[in-house]
Amino acid sequence: MEIAMNTSEAVMSPESTIENGVLAPVRDAVGTPLLAREDARMTCRNVNVYYGEKHAIHDVSLDIGKNEVIAMIGPSGCGKSTFLRCLNRMNDTIDICRVQGQIRIDDQDIYDKSVDVVPLRAQVGMVFQKPNPFPKSIYDNIAYGPRIHGLSNNRTDLDEIVQGSLQKAGLWEEVKDRLDQPGTGLSGGQQQRLCIARAIAVSPEVILMDEPCSALDPIATARIEELIDELRSNFTIAIVTHSMQQAARVSQRTAYFHLGDLVEVGPTEEIFTNPSHKLTEDYITGRFG
């Protein structure tokens, strides 16, 4: 991590902070307490993402701390989802997508050629915008991950994993009598909790959530937010959201993205009460976005 920080400092030019006046993103925050965290689970340094010719993310450096919920907010098309998808290399599936810079977990650059995405994605799980349960039974939905990774030795083990995951996701009581029913038959909120249960069934360290509540009604959303709060004790969670209230409710830190730049990152309370950047202030007060 030390090395990573040094290189990024070397690459940084001091000009980049002042060249656009108020629009300048906080890129030089490397080393400040807000960005580089002692307990960082994942460290990202100078991440640039290109879709073909389009430069989608500029030089983003961000740490994701252990057992914290970090929210990423910003107007549509600001690159927050793109950045999130870099963290477990889901962008690999897009042919024209190129990622530069360093994203490290356990001191290993995940974009290194030697890194296998299969264990990476077991370590960094993901929950998507639209609930996407497999068209299989509820049981098989949860059991699929443990099965392919060989996490259970026998049926009893697997049953325990399934039950444990569903309990952690707060879905057990609702579905314990119909584990053999198709997962697609659940309500939207239940489906999303099923997807969360499916993600935690492989015991990841980090869970990425890409607008997990955008397709849900307020009650289901509240249920998921509660769940995120509970999960924080065991997992590190990075969540992209369009709802600033949600970011304020669930996260400890918030990162504001704007047009591919990471403008500001800090403790959630501070971002929402006393943002240091004009852009952030405009966004959270609803002047645009």
Binding site: V117, R121, M126, F128, F134, Y144, V202
Partner: peptide, 27 residues
């Protein structure tokens, strides 16, 4: 086959082949 199913499989660490044979092909 909807891309969300592919993402779901890849997202929990299925290899490409597992994604295709366990999820995409049956659908």
């Amino acid at each position: 086959v909807p891309p969300s199913i592919r993402e779901a499989a890849l997202g929990i660490g299925a290899s490409k082949m597992q994604m295709v044979f366990h999820h995409v092909l049956p659908l």
